[in-house]
């Protein structure tokens, strides 16, 4: 059952993103930036948290999950540290993925050439 919900939620986000790219003048970069912003807003409203509880990876893997994790970091860190939580906590959850992606990208670029 969890797999089905992950499939439906993740697929739904991708399907909507595809429609946005095809039907409007937005490029995929616009759409991804929009997804991240939407995830952050829904996270701030407390709705995305519930979606992650139900859909798991289906809500975390789309880029809206990235926006949610940014907000989640501010919220959880800010509860203890007040206003300092905004700047410090923002990377609390995504820092791991972000730094890993940067380092691995760097070393991959060391080894691999683009193939065209």
């Amino acid at each position: 059952m969890e797999y089905w919900i992950a499939f439906l939620v993740g697929g739904f986000v991708c399907g909507i993103a595809q429609l946005m790219i095809d039907r409007t003048n937005f490029s995929q970069i616009h759409v991804i930036a929009g997804l991240v912003s939407a995830g952050a807003i829904l996270g701030a409203l407390g709705w995305y948290d519930r979606l992650v509880d139900i859909a798991g990876a289906g809500a975390l893997l789309p880029m809206s999950g990235f926006g949610f994790l940014l907000v989640k970091g501010i919220w959880s860190y800010g509860a203890e540290h007040g206003w300092m939580g905004i700047g410090t906590g923002i990377f609390q959850f995504v820092g791991l993925e972000l730094s890993f992606a940067i380092v691995l990208s760097f070393f991959t670029a060391l080894i691999c050439k683009p193939r065209g």
Binding site: E2, Y3, A6, F7, L8, V9, G10, G11, F12, V13, C14, G15, A17, Q18, L19, D22, R23, A55, G56, A57, G58, L60, L61, P62
Partner: peptide, 23 residues
């Protein structure tokens, strides 16, 4: 539109299922 969205839906959904299975 329809075919593209369906392809995106199924591929994106399957990737999320893979993520869920990994978790």
């Amino acid at each position: 539109y329809v075919v593209n969205s369906l392809k995106a839906f199924v591929s994106g959904g399957l990737l999320c299922v893979l993520g869920e299975a990994l978790k």
